[in-house]
Amino acid sequence: MFGKKKNVPQIDKEQLELIQNAQKRIKQKKRLYAHFVVFLIGALFLILANTVLGIGKNFKIAEIEWFVFAILLWLFFLLYHIFNVFVTHKFMGKAWEQKQLDKLVALQKNRIEKIKTELKKEAPHIAKSEVYNEQLNNKKTQELTIIVAAAENNAIGKDNKLIWHLSNDLKRFKTLTNGHHIIMGRKTFESFPKPLPNRTHVVITRQQNYKVPEGVITVNSLEAAIEACKTDAQPFIIGGGQIYEQAMNIADKIELTRVHETFEADAFFPEIDTNIWKETSNTFHKKDDNHKHEFSFITYTRK
């Protein structure tokens, strides 16, 4: 009694429109074909009517039989009909043309809205990328370098003093830092008898109104110290242990003097992670009269 409901194929509006247009065109061509057949029969009838039946035999226009003009006029209408079908496509009509134009406008509006939506989504990422690139470019103009002498157990000092005296290490320190800003903690600064010549000292301290000689810059953070060195293409961080630890996350290079012994100490250099740092040079020095310990000059750059 109750049969299964038949699935009625669904035709979307665009397909339906194409079918309707095709039907209109078929009708138009059928009319044109009928017009052509009627024209042939009618032309033949006019000729026979004049020549056989004698209708209007004596009626002429400019010495030409009247039926010739009648056939030519009819031919003109036939040609006009053909032109409409195959050239101007009148079967589509003004309403169809306007509808197609409206569709195109709607499609363009949709595309514009999609582009606007995508741009709104991407704008924060683009802005962030531009800021990042700007920061990266600014960073590339400055190479922040850690310079340190550390033992095999990473010892760097005891009682705010150096544990060893290596003449070549001191010469290297002087050569590399000469003419640059040197960033240090308060205790490191206080370990100097006086400020080092031909270098700009930037001292990090939490003490308020900390007294320093003229020309020495005081700040309260590593970030502020780096900002104070923005005119220097290669500022150096020279200690102590806590400052080194903070700087390991942002430095571009490490100039390390590795002393090949272990020492008792109260200040240590952080462990160098070789997943982050790449060794680019290594020069070994043996013991001699001026150096009681073997040591190596090693350069690391951030990967």
Rank of each mutant, 00 (worst) to 15 (best):
L72I: 11
L78R: 00
K90F: 12
N178A: 02
F91D: 11
K128Q: 14
K90Q: 13
F83V: 06
K90M: 06
Q142L: 00
T177I: 06
A151Q: 07
K174H: 00
L170W: 07
A150V: 03
A127C: 02
I163E: 06
F86I: 03
L166T: 00
H165V: 02
L170R: 00
F86K: 08
I112Y: 10
Q100C: 04
V85G: 07
E130N: 09
L166G: 00
I71N: 05
A149S: 08
R172D: 07
K90T: 13
F69V: 01
V85S: 07
W74Q: 10
F173G: 00
R172F: 01
K114H: 06
A127D: 13
L78M: 05
K94I: 13
Y80F: 14
Y80E: 08
I163C: 04
D159G: 11
L162P: 01
W74E: 10
D102H: 07
T145M: 00
R111V: 13
E134C: 07
Q135R: 15
H165F: 08
W74I: 03
N138P: 01
M92R: 15
A155L: 09
K99D: 08
N84W: 06
E118A: 11
K161W: 10
E130L: 14
I126R: 12
F173Y: 04
V105W: 06
E143N: 08
T88Y: 01
N154D: 11
A95S: 13
G157K: 04
H81G: 07
K90D: 11
N137Y: 11
F86V: 08
L136M: 07
D169Y: 01
R172H: 13
I156N: 04
A106K: 10
V131H: 14
V87G: 03
F86Q: 04
L166W: 02
R172G: 05
S129W: 12
H165P: 01
T88I: 09
K174S: 00
K121P: 09
V131Q: 15
T141Q: 14
K114Q: 11
H125G: 09
E152H: 09
Q135F: 10
E113G: 03
K161P: 06
